[in-house]
């Protein structure tokens, strides 16, 4: 499902002294089957932008077109809002707080049931999703509140991916996880992406950006200041310094090597393995 934003503005608490323009004239296209990452400072409008896509927030002006379903300020009249939300799954930051059922299985099957799936089928779907996120079967009948933090996060994410959305939006899904858990989580999203899901992820982790993203959207003060391929982000000093982010080590290394006479294609460098491969290739070339 391609997603197009056109002239979208969003204002928080309009016509009060607390008025705040969170998004200003956003024009953006998110391609089908892309792994798009939204980066930017806190308060740059990343989360606000993400929530426009499944109509949790509706534009003050302008519109979002999600595969033909148009979300604009008259969205309350939109009849296919449920259809939209079925197609666009949104996982909030720290999604653990949305758990409420007595058992893990019941909680995950809550979503499908809301969309009119029968009880048995919902349970099958839930089991599938739980397997995918790596929750073992002996936890299915436990209360979600007895689980560890990382397990809770997995269950909450399973609650969304069990809906099999065409677009999956993730708001800092790895925040607060240990490095190991974070890596596993990213692998999981990569797997979901490969199965044909468009993924939009909000992140601060540049290592993840360089490794997994197909496109990057940079937001600053409510405006899109750059849309590019991940490696290009680290070529543009201007954007780069504005974001005050740290360059991934692999990119730094590749850049240094290039300064010393190597010809490494930066767009091919995604992690340590691919960097090693590029160096190897260079050596063979010689």
């Amino acid at each position: 499902m391609p997603i197009t934003f056109s002239h979208l503005n969003y204002v928080y608490s309009p016509k009060t002294p607390l008025e705040y323009g969170a998004l200003k004239d956003i024009n953006l296209e998110i391609k089908d089957n892309s792994f798009t990452m939204l980066v930017g400072h806190t308060g740059s409008g990343k989360s606000t932008l993400a929530q426009q896509i499944n109509a949790l927030l509706t534009p003050t002006s302008g519109e979002v077109n999600v595969n033909g379903i148009i979300v604009d300020k008259n969205v309350k009249k939109l009849k296919n809002i449920k259809e939209l939300r079925k197609g666009v799954g949104l996982v909030f930051q720290f999604p653990e707080y949305q758990l409420f059922e007595e058992t893990v299985l019941k909680d995950v099957s809550f979503g499908p049931k809301n969309f009119g799936v029968s009880n048995e089928e919902a349970i099958t779907l839930a089991k599938e999703a739980l397997n995918l996120v790596g929750i073992s079967e002996d936890l299915f009948e436990k209360s979600p509140f007895e689980l560890s933090g990382g397990q809770k996060r997995r269950v909450a994410i399973a609650g969304i991916i069990t809906l099999k959305p065409k677009v999956l939006i993730l708001d800092e899904p790895t925040a607060g996880l240990d490095p190991q858990g974070s890596r596993e989580m990213m692998k999981l999203f990569s797997k979901i992406h490969e199965s044909g899901t468009t993924i939009i992820m909000i992140t601060h982790d540049m290592d993840n950006v360089i490794r997994y993203a197909s496109d990057v959207v940079v937001l600053s003060k409510g405006e899109v200041i750059k849309t590019c391929k991940p490696y290009e982000l680290f070529l543009d000093e201007n954007v780069f310094s504005k974001l005050s982010i740290e360059e991934p080590l692999v990119i730094t290394m590749a850049k240094r090597l290039n300064q010393n006479g190597y010809h490494i294609a930066l767009e091919e460098v995604r992690d340590i393995d691919s960097l090693a491969f590029q160096i190897q290739k260079e050596k063979k070339h010689e």
Binding site: Q51, N54, L56, K82, R85, K86, G89, L90, V91, F92, P95, Y97, Q98, F110, G111, P112, N114, F115, G159, I160, L163
Partner: peptide, 16 residues
Amino acid sequence: EETDKIMKAQASRGVD
């Protein structure tokens, strides 16, 4: 704020 957040999260799971 929390209520708003939870309502949105549940709305994403199809709660109306």
